[in-house]
Design a protein around this nucleic acid. Structure first.
Lengths: 225, 225
DNA sequence: GCCTGTATTATTGTATACAATTGCTCTGAC
DNA sequence: GTCAGAGCAATTGTATACAATAATACAGGC
């Protein structure tokens, strides 16, 4: 998997950036269970760095909500509950709809071209069952949508949520059926944006999230409310 | 004004927490203009601490989007543009609507009582023209709404935005007319929640944000698109 | 005059040393 | 046996020392 998905907030060439990316990935991938205490020295030794960059990475992870730091005590991994996932998908359904609506007016030529290429390529990899590529293309499609919205605030927010549910999304797309369906939905969103149809774009992006959420429910990846 | 509005992410009794809160407040209050370079040593000397807590605070501020750190170069203040404010109000209009809808089912007895007291008290202070109290009560009303939504994710998000536009909100409420109107809108939202009317609650909270936004436009606090 | 390369300086990045706090264990009184 | 308190060990909080990087100024060649 790629290492540094959220560029701009962590330079991957500094020790701190590497610690941050690594811990983030490890937490999202479930290496550390909920409630586990992360010790600065232990993490530092594992990654071959001193406490300083580890501490700085901790502060960032806390603000992302991935760990909770209790002063003078320690840093503890915060899990993502099924309720959190549900909430995020509801929020995403509304905000991605807004992003698609705004993208109609703000998408650039380059973004449109990359989005078309993305959908085209995804069709190929879905047929071949290349899960890793499907995952990456899905990631990129959504990031493109966020960037195309023309709103730094909305983009930042949606990228956050997108990363947050990374673990569960990976499982979801592994199902071939959802992969195909998801790609068709991407294509429909792209068409609506191309046709300058604000309402369709918003509605389709909204439904796309709801469908992704329902798929998780159907496959038992999360429990219903 | 209160100092540490965002509890849970910064303990105000550590040096780092104090640096974080202080810089956050200074940036939001406009002490540092957009693009200003913040030097670790200078900030440290100003607050009487070493570089270590300053650096940690910087990392957090970057993640909040208040400063931008360029590796090996420096930390630069990121301003809040009129467009950012506009975007946030659009997002808030949608998310506060959602919060109000969810609050119908999740608000506790205590929260409901505090909300009623809040609206009642605000009426008094509005008549008297007590701007500081009006501001605090408005703050609290919205935080209560977020907490009552029963979603940590949504609550966290809305509190962030709420803080982010702190500076401009203070100016807005200072106008007596808006203060009165705002309080009437709070009362209407409260009634809808009490009557278990999901649609009304969402619609009214949505409109409340749109009205606040329009008021800022009318008073020339931000430029239109 | 202008370009280029080098030396200098200022600033950030990292490691380490020291201080403060917490939690635990052991002891002893009852 | 249980509880309270002292002392110890482990961990975090902060300061400082050192390393690496980037910007600047300046000298020399053309």
């Amino acid at each position: 998997m790629e290492e540094d998905v959220k560029e701009g907030t962590s330079d991957k060439y500094s020790l701190r950036g590497r610690v941050f990316s690594r811990l983030r990935e490890d937490i999202l991938n479930g290496k550390y269970d909920e409630g586990v205490e992360l010790r600065e020295i232990a993490i530092g030794e594992e990654l071959g760095v001193s406490r300083t960059p580890v501490r700085e990475a901790f502060r960032q992870l806390e603000l992302e909500g991935l760990i909770k730091i209790i002063p003078n005590k320690g840093a503890y991994v915060v899990g993502i509950s099924d309720k959190d996932v549900r909430d995020i998908y509801i929020l995403r359904s509304r905000l991605e709809g807004l992003a698609a609506r705004w993208a109609v007016d703000n998408i650039t030529e380059e973004q449109m071209e990359e989005m078309e290429e993305n959908v085209y390529l995804a069709k190929f990899h879905t047929e071949k069952g290349h899960n890793e590529q499907i995952f990456e293309l899905d990631n990129r499609f959504h990031e493109l949508l966020y960037e195309a919205s023309g709103s730094k605030i909305l983009e930042h927010q949606l990228k956050d949520y997108h990363q947050y549910v990374l673990r569960i999304r990976k499982k979801t797309l592994a199902s071939a059926k959802r992969g195909t369906q998801s790609n068709l939905e991407h294509e429909a969103i792209l068409e609506a944006i191309k046709n300058k149809n604000h309402d369709d774009a918003e509605r389709l992006a909204h439904e796309h999230m709801i469908n992704a959420y329902k798929n998780m429910l159907d496959n038992g990846l999360i429990k219903p409310e």
